[in-house]
């Protein structure tokens, strides 16, 4: 049994490789096709045609595309993602500081939203057409229809400006604290690792409001999917058997129905995670969160090839990893998966 499951996982990894190569090719071509000339931007407003050509040459932009691509591949294999034109830092360094910030925010948001959405979806499925179901639908619709920057600003207005409960929305940590030593890149976890509970608490407080903002937005797909999957599971024949055998409703709902309903929910979670990670630019902007989304947008505006490519590539790797993780969880929950492969 375990053998066939390991095989499934290995096969999935193997299938991810061509996807990654495709991503490398496509991002390379797309960034070259973007309007705007990095050499012009880099040379500054006072440059003449000569100095621009010189800079273009020094950046390797005068070479034919296939050659540029080969050079790019060579750099990649050495772990060199290039130099960011706008920050002046190696792209790899930028990503290693900013990606954990985004991940921390996304994880916190997804944790919050699953904690609310899954019980809400179960309750709605148990009482379809009743008050709980309608309340759930209302909350979910509101969450998804209000733009995140708006909910973010409203939260800041009430909880920071009026009530003063939340810390100022200025990034990952208040100025009063020093960032903990880099281990995982998650400030909350890193601070706890060195036993600095005060900093950990401050970092958690800092991440709370942007996480709530994102969570409100991601409630909808998770809650809807949980509801639909639960309704389907509850009407299936094995639930009828379980009820006919006199099992307690707790057992029937939590073990029998939810176990089966989790499968589509996990797939949804994987998708929600992927799009949240890349699409939370607005939340990052509102809360001055130094994440990867805002980094990518800034790089894109100034045709910073290396930074954009690095961003897209790291996102692609994350997507592949998340999908792999979803598949692994799937095989753990559903014994049928491994044997079909």
């Amino acid at each position: 049994m375990l053998g066939s499951r390991t095989k499934t996982v290995l096969q999935r990894l193997w299938q991810a490789l061509p996807v990654l190569f495709g991503v490398i090719v496509v991002t390379f071509l797309l960034t070259r096709a973007l309007p705007g000339d990095p050499a012009v931007y880099f040379a500054g407003p006072a440059a003449d045609a000569n100095s621009i050509a010189e800079i273009r040459k020094s950046l390797g932009l005068d070479l034919p595309l296939p050659q540029q691509f080969l050079i790019y591949l060579g750099d990649l294999s050495r772990g060199d993602l290039g130099q960011s034109l706008s920050t002046g830092q190696p792209v790899l360094t930028d990503l290693t500081t900013r990606l954990p910030a985004s991940l921390e925010l996304t994880f916190a948001a997804l944790f919050l939203s699953t904690m609310i959405a899954i019980p809400m979806g179960i309750l709605a499925a148990l009482n379809p057409g009743r008050l709980v179901d309608h309340a759930c639908r209302l909350l979910v619709t509101m969450g998804v229809s209000l733009p995140t920057f708006f909910t973010g600003l409203v939260l800041v207005f009430f909880f920071y400006y009026l009530l003063g409960w939340a810390p100022s929305p200025i990034g990952r940590l208040d100025f009063a604290y020093l960032p903990p030593p880099h281990v995982t890149g998650f400030f909350t976890i890193d601070a706890m690792l060195v036993g600095d509970l005060e900093t950990a608490w401050a970092a958690a407080a800092q991440v709370f409001m942007p996480a709530v903002t994102l969570a409100l937005f991601t409630l909808a797909p998770i809650a809807r999917m949980t509801r639909a999957a639960m309704i389907q599971a509850l009407s299936s024949e094995y639930i009828r058997t379980a009820r006919a055998a006199g099992l307690s409703s707790r057992k029937v709902i939590l073990t029998y129905a939810l176990g089966n309903a989790m499968l589509p929910v996990i797939t949804t979670l994987g998708m929600v995670f992927s799009f949240t990670l890349g699409a939370n630019v607005l939340v990052e902007k509102v809360f001055a969160w130094p994440g990867i989304g805002s980094y990518a947008v800034e790089a894109l505006v100034v045709s910073d090839y290396a930074a954009v490519q690095g961003f897209v590539l790291s996102m692609a790797i994350l997507f592949v990893l998340v999908n792999l993780l979803v598949d692994v969880i799937y095989t753990l929950i559903d014994p049928r998966v491994g044997s079909e492969a």
């Binding site: 024949e237 094995y238 058997t241 009820r243 055998a245 073990t255 176990g259 089966n260 559903d334 049928r336």
Partner: peptide, 24 residues
């Protein structure tokens, strides 16, 4: 009723494969 079901009255269904929880 829950105490009766399964202990005093129980039921066998058609389509046995669907009548069992597929992932348990």
């Amino acid at each position: 009723m829950r105490d009766l079901r399964g202990r005093e009255i129980s039921m066998i269904f058609q389509n046995p494969r669907m009548a069992l929880n597929p992932i348990r």
